[in-house]
């Protein structure tokens, strides 16, 4: 389903048909053109062939249905994973993938172990949200937020990721508020610079995962292209220009990045910055082990004492294998997105 093609498919029809079609897809969330009764029968039949609406996907829910994973099959047969997180406060957040696979090869991430197969189009990113919007509709619920934390590096697919943001934000479409959309990057500096210049209120998240260059380079190949201080200088420029708070994600890995001195170094880096730190419990892949709860509490305490806003993410979605690129599906040995967890205080 390529949403940019709908205008072409409707060529020759009255102009208002385009608005009706968009309303059908994104507002009424129809899954069959027969439900768009404003359209003549012949047009519905033609659209069913030229612009079919079904999304081919398998879903996996946890026992409490607080997290639902979907494996969506794309038109070329490739599969992507996307996760719906249902929060207790009523928010429904979709974690989207921006690429099939990922080129960045972070050591802790199973998605990184498969190389990049291809980048997703803007429509393929939006499709993931549309799928869950349809799923929630019978309950009278809607998707309230989107996080780009799934498979792939959004800033390695910058144009399409930003085009998807604009489609998601479209008032005549899914109408997801920019402030409820977050893009997470492993630290592509030029991407952050371009993002700074966008007139958008979308949130920026940075996968930091270590306060020192040595550890960060061991965990993330991209960290070999810049130092932590260079990364933070670019983020500071973003904060200065946009006045928006930045989230720093810190995956807590036992014996790797959870030492006392690393907590203090992290606090020193973050102090005084318009930011919050998200400490994320790591799901073991066999390569690394999770930090203990005590270490996470220690980090939280050190950061709080330094006046740095901090949250700790409890695992969310583990039953649906919705964790940080560590999830192998049984089919195709495909791997899942970012750590799909819930933000909550310890």
């Amino acid at each position: 389903m390529d949403f940019t093609q709908i205008g072409e498919v409707l060529e020759g029809e009255p102009k208002y048909r385009l608005a009706q079609a968009k309303r059908g897809i994104f507002v009424d969330l129809v899954e069959d053109w027969e439900q768009v009764t404003a359209f003549p029968k012949a047009l519905r039949a033609r659209l069913a062939v030229d612009f079919p609406l079904p999304i081919e996907a398998q879903t996996f829910g946890d026992t409490k249905m607080t997290a639902v994973k979907a494996l969506i099959r794309l038109s070329d047969g490739k599969r992507i994973e996307t996760v719906l997180m249902r929060h207790t406060d009523g928010r429904n957040t979709v974690c989207v993938s921006s690429q099939v696979g990922c080129p960045m090869a972070c050591a802790f991430c199973a998605t990184g172990k498969m190389s990049l197969l291809r980048s997703l189009s803007a429509s393929e990113i939006v499709l993931q949200v549309l799928f869950f919007a349809r799923l929630l509709k019978p309950e009278g619920e809607r998707v309230s937020g989107v996080v780009f934390m799934g498979m792939g590096e959004p800033f390695a697919n910058y144009d399409n990721a930003l085009a998807a943001v604009r489609m998601l934000n479209d008032h005549d479409g899914l109408n997801i508020g920019a402030r409820h959309i977050s893009i997470s990057t492993c630290g592509i500096l030029e991407g952050i610079r371009r993002f700074t210049s966008e007139a958008l209120q979308v949130n920026l998240a940075i996968s930091l995962h270590a306060p020192d260059d040595k550890t960060r380079r061991e965990l993330m190949p991209v960290a070999r292209t810049h130092t932590v201080l260079e990364l933070l200088a670019v983020v500071d420029e973003y904060i200065a220009q946009t006045k928006r708070k930045v989230m720093f994600e810190y995956l807590m890995i036992g014996g790797k990045n959870d030492a006392d001195e690393q907590a203090h170094a992290l606090a020193k880096l973050m102090q005084g910055k318009l930011c919050m730190v998200n400490l994320i419990a790591y799901n073991s892949t066999g390569v690394f082990v999770p930090a203990t709860r005590e270490r996470m509490v220690f980090f939280k305490t050190v950061l709080e004492q330094a006046g740095v806003p901090v949250t700790v993410r409890f695992r969310h979605g583990r039953e649906v294998k919705g964790a940080c690129g560590q999830l192998l599906t049984k089919e195709d040995a495909y791997v899942l997105p970012s750590d799909v967890t819930d933000a909550a205080s310890v």
């Binding site: 960045m104 390695a156 260059d213 040595k214 190949p221 070999r224 292209t225």
Partner: peptide, 11 residues
Amino acid sequence: LCQRIHAELFY
């Protein structure tokens, strides 16, 4: 020293 290593990634 890692400060002496400068890298560019093609991805």
